[in-house]
């Protein structure tokens, strides 16, 4: 009975409930057993050893944990792994091709020196990726808005916007 509560009503859980979850991450199907309270971020990092998505604030303020679910940028720290049953997830590890060729967004970040420490960069790149998939030629305002959910404590914002402008086809 996968869809019935495993406890009798109002009984305190005796052990943390687990579930089996099926995820397709970067094109590869996975079946993992997780505690219901495991976040997608922790499942990616601890169960699948994909450490590109970063734990930052843990409360949806910083964007370091950004991944794509069905192409949409979301915060994996506020997403339960069990709620991702059957979903297709893209992390930073899935952007480059199998022969190591970088995604154009990654190349633009390098070309425009759009990072310092790099901690926020996987999330920044994926937020930009989601924007461009929806809107290949965003305006400056649209770029700034799309990137407003990702903080960078190094303050690389002007160069991140420059990378975005180049990707959008604006003259530098």
């Amino acid at each position: 009975m996968p869809n019935a509560p495993s406890q009798s009503p109002d009984a305190a859980p005796t052990a943390a409930p687990h579930r089996t979850v099926h995820l397709t991450v970067n094109g590869i199907a996975h079946e993992i057993e997780v505690e219901t309270r495991r976040t997608l971020l922790d499942a990616l990092r601890a169960d699948l050893h994909l450490t590109g998505a970063k734990p930052g604030c843990g409360m949806g303020d910083c964007g370091a944990c950004t991944v794509l679910i069905e192409g949409e940028a979301v915060y994996s720290c506020l997403t339960l792994a069990v709620a991702c049953e059957g979903r297709a997830i893209t992390t930073i590890e899935g952007l480059s091709s199998s022969d190591g060729e970088l995604d154009p967004v990654q190349s633009a970040f390098i070309a425009h020196d759009a990072l310092q420490c790099g901690f926020c960069t996987p999330g920044q790149v994926l937020a930009m990726k989601a924007l461009l998939a929806r809107n290949p030629h965003p305006s400056d305002d649209e770029i700034a808005r799309a990137m407003s959910g990702n903080l960078c404590r190094c303050g690389a914002y002007p160069k991140i916007l420059a990378a975005g402008r180049a990707l959008a086809g604006h003259p530098s």
Binding site: Q7, E35, T36
Partner: peptide, 9 residues
């Protein structure tokens, strides 16, 4: 987070 059960509707 405290443990909880999780079902889908």
């Amino acid at each position: 987070m405290q443990p909880f059960d999780h079902v889908s509707a």
